[in-house]
Design a protein around this nucleic acid. Structure first.
Length: 670
RNA sequence: GCGCCUGUAGCUCAGUGGAUAGAGCAGCUGCCUUCUAAGCAGCUGGCCGCAGGUUCGAUCCCUGCCAGGCGCGCCA
């Protein structure tokens, strides 16, 4: 990892630990907290370690701190200029800012020299991991019976940022999008088409058409209970492959998924493979898994009690399940059919490559907008890719399932069942990335026709059946419209194409950032005004900082075209830039902030915390904005001017990487 | 009933066993002949849900309580 401040902190901790080991006459364990002091006059980094050590060493904290300083000075840590003691005995570290500036510039140079993540170490791109660890990330997973809504958007945006972070952290990542095309959801649409005789308007998107149809047929169920019986009959006919409905159901699912892909591609979200529930069934994944699990001996065939005749996994001895009335989970019903969780276990085994069975595959989309091929599972080998060749899917070291928090219980059952049934390693590497759902604010609910005045709730749950929800496309369209107004005001000279293009980039930035900036434990109470905001802590603010930096570079003659942001920084001779002995506070702050880049990225990637990185990028942008306000670049005298131009260029490089890691477009002009 | 999550400024959210609890929005005051005002500066605004405990020190850790959300099928 290439974070100058991280390297410095590590060395500092090492030396502090060795000091206390010597002083206390024994190994010194325990964390050494390091954080910026409340007042930057004290120093750049501070630790209260001498306060907590006072009791053990039986000495005053300030006296300990003085001796610690002597030790640290002798160690001569690169990047450190000096130390101070303040307050009750806080030890503060003063950085060698010019030295760190030098390192930040050379990081920028490395970033510019390499073309992408995983090749060399620059801002936020680490070399491929030596163990070649493969991470499978499953996200999006929208039922193929209606258009994507803002809840799916949170899932896809979070999943996609995880993908980007993991890739930058050096992992090999495979993105899977699981599609549940079986069950009642698609049957509802078939029934809706047959019973309600509805057809899409010529200009209507098919997935949007299904959104309304799904609502309407669910409304019909409440008036006409007999229809529920017909739903079951349709489902049976689909499952039996009845030629009068089965192909139609398949076609519906295919067309709706096409709609979902259209929406996600527009946001810069791409996949490696689509996996279909129907293929899992057709390929006999569960039958296969069943045989493997029976070998383990922990799958029990009950002969008496409430679960008589079922195959169950017993989870009662695990603390997580201790309080349940019945901690035994049925995997095979007494009638011989597999439960949903059973299929899920088999599917998870496939992801790890321990099922002993694979799908057949064919190309779904030769070139997604990012140029990558999208594959899809199929169950008929005859329809596979002509040469039979396809990439290796699954066989992961780590599996991350991006699924909302309501599924926590089921994901726990999945993981612990794997553990119990003979796959403890796979269980340990199964991660449920569970995030809170998206609900609606009263204002937004009212706009969607909910009778808000009838009650006083502050949060309104979405409901696909009732048609209460915000379609992802509707949000995107509104964001683009709003961005267009603003762009048109600022750039009346733009052609319609340029206008559309820039507004779309800004809209995507606003929506994606809105979806990932929150901690995953917090419910997003969706509000149009907030989601469409482009001021303050928003995506466009981040993009704007980048655009302003590019503007300076353009005027410094380092950018060719008006909107290009590619390759110009190569013109800077990074290594030869003269770094002043004294840095302005705003310059120093920017240097320190950039120096942390890889440390935060690594932390966010390893611990799966997108919001941590989003937060950092916001602070990176606002630190630059502060620099922009306080320090003149182009009108500065040499050699300061050259240094500042280089610093701005380094920021532009870092910010482009940061935006890319979040999946936000990085326009050079706004 | 049991379990999980959440309670921080009017609103939406950061935050950490340590020094004066931070942003954004909203409100009020200013700043565009000066590298893009999608910006910046300032003001107003906090029993960090409540009560105990641990600690030299608690918004943070522990216990209890209150409030809200979610989950607990031989459904998917």
């Amino acid at each position: 990892m290439t974070s100058p401040t991280y390297a410095l902190e590590r060395k500092l901790r090492e030396e502090i630990r060795s000091f206390f080991t010597q002083s206390s006459g024994g190994p010194w364990s325990g964390d050494i907290p390091l954080a910026p002091p409340p007042n930057l006059d004290f120093g750049d980094l501070s630790t209260p370690i001498c306060l907590s050590a006072a009791k053990v060493l039986r000495d005053r904290p300030s006296a300990i701190a003085q001796r610690l300083i002597d030790h640290l000075r002798a160690a001569d840590i690169p990047g450190v200029k000096d130390y101070t003691v303040t307050g009750a005995g806080f030890l503060n570290v003063i950085f060698d800012s010019p030295g760190l500036a030098r390192e930040v510039l050379s990081l920028a140079a490395k970033t510019v020299r390499t073309s992408g993540p995983g090749e060399d170490e620059g801002f936020g791109s680490m070399p491929a991991r030596p163990d070649h660890a493969k991470v499978v990330i499953e996200h999006t997973n929208i039922n193929p019976n209606k258009a994507a809504h803002i809840g799916h958007l949170r899932n896809a945006c979070l999943g996609d940022v995880l993908v980007r972070l993991k890739r930058r952290a050096g992992y090999q990542v495979e993105v899977q999008n699981y599609i549940d095309d079986t069950g009642t959801t698609v049957a509802d649409i078939v029934l809706g088409l047959e019973k309600l005789g509805r057809r899409p308007r010529p200009d209507e998107l098919f997935d949007h058409f299904c959104w309304d149809l799904y609502t309407d047929i669910n409304e019909e169920y409440t008036h006409n209970p007999a229809l529920k019986e017909e739903q079951k009959a349709i489902l049976k006919r689909i499952e039996d492959g009845d030629p009068s409905v089965a192909p139609m159901a398949k076609d519906i699912a295919r067309r709706v998924v096409k709609g979902h892909l259209r929406t996600m591609w527009g946001l810069g979200i791409f996949y490696d493979v689509l996996t279909w529930e129907s293929d899992i069934i057709n390929m006999g994944f569960w039958r296969h898994g069943f045989e493997r699990l029976k070998e383990g001996g922990s799958l029990i065939h009950e002969t008496e009690g409430p679960n008589a005749g079922c195959w169950v996994v017993k989870l009662g001895d695990l603390p997580e399940f201790a309080g349940l009335e019945n901690p035994d989970k049925v995997l095979v019903r007494s009638n011989g059919t597999a439960t949903y969780v059973a299929k899920d276990i088999a599917y998870q085994m496939w992801k790890f490559g321990v099922l002993g069975k694979d799908f057949c595959y064919t190309v779904h989309t030769p070139r997604q907008p990012n140029g990558q091929t999208l594959w899809t599972s199929i169950s008929d080998p005859a329809q596979g890719s002509p040469d039979g060749e396809h990439p290796t899917f699954g066989k992961a070291n780590v599996v991350i399932n991006v699924i909302d928090i309501r599924q926590k219980y089921l994901q726990d059952i999945l993981r612990y069942s794997l553990q119990k049934l003979g796959f403890p390693n796979e269980a340990a590497h199964s991660i449920h990335f569970g995030y809170e759902v998206v609900s609606l604010s009263p204002d937004t609910a009212r706009e969607l026709g909910v009778d808000v005045e009838a009650n006083e709730k502050t949060v309104y749950a979405m409901s696909g059946r009732k048609g209460i929800g915000v379609k992802a496309d509707d949000l995107i369209w509104r964001a683009v419209d709003k961005a267009k107004e603003e762009v048109a005001r600022r750039h009346p000279e733009f052609s319609p194409t340029e206008l559309e293009d820039l507004a779309t980039q800004i809209a995507v930035g606003a929506i994606r950032y809105y979806m990932v900036k929150y901690n995953i434990n917090s419910l997003i109470v969706f509000d149009f005004a907030e989601a469409l905001s482009m001021q303050g802590n928003t995506g466009p603010y981040l993009q704007y900082a980048h655009a302003r930096a590019n503007s300076i570079l353009r005027k410094a003659g380092l950018l060719d075209g008006a909107t290009s942001s590619s390759g110009p920084q190569a013109a800077i001779d990074w290594e030869k830039v003269e770094v002043p002995a004294y840095l302005e506070p705003a310059e120093k702050a920017l240097v320190l902030k950039m120096a942390e880049f890889s440390k935060i990225l690594d932390d966010a990637a390893e611990n799966n915390v997108p919001s941590l990185f989003a937060d950092y990028v916001y602070s990176l942008a606002s630190t630059f904005t502060d620099f922009y306000e306080k320090v003149k670049v182009l009108s500065a005298a040499e050699p300061e001017r050259a240094f500042r131009v280089a610093l701005v260029a380094a920021f532009a490089v870092a910010m482009r990487g940061a935006l890319a890691a979040l999946g936000l477009p990085a326009p050079a002009v706004m």
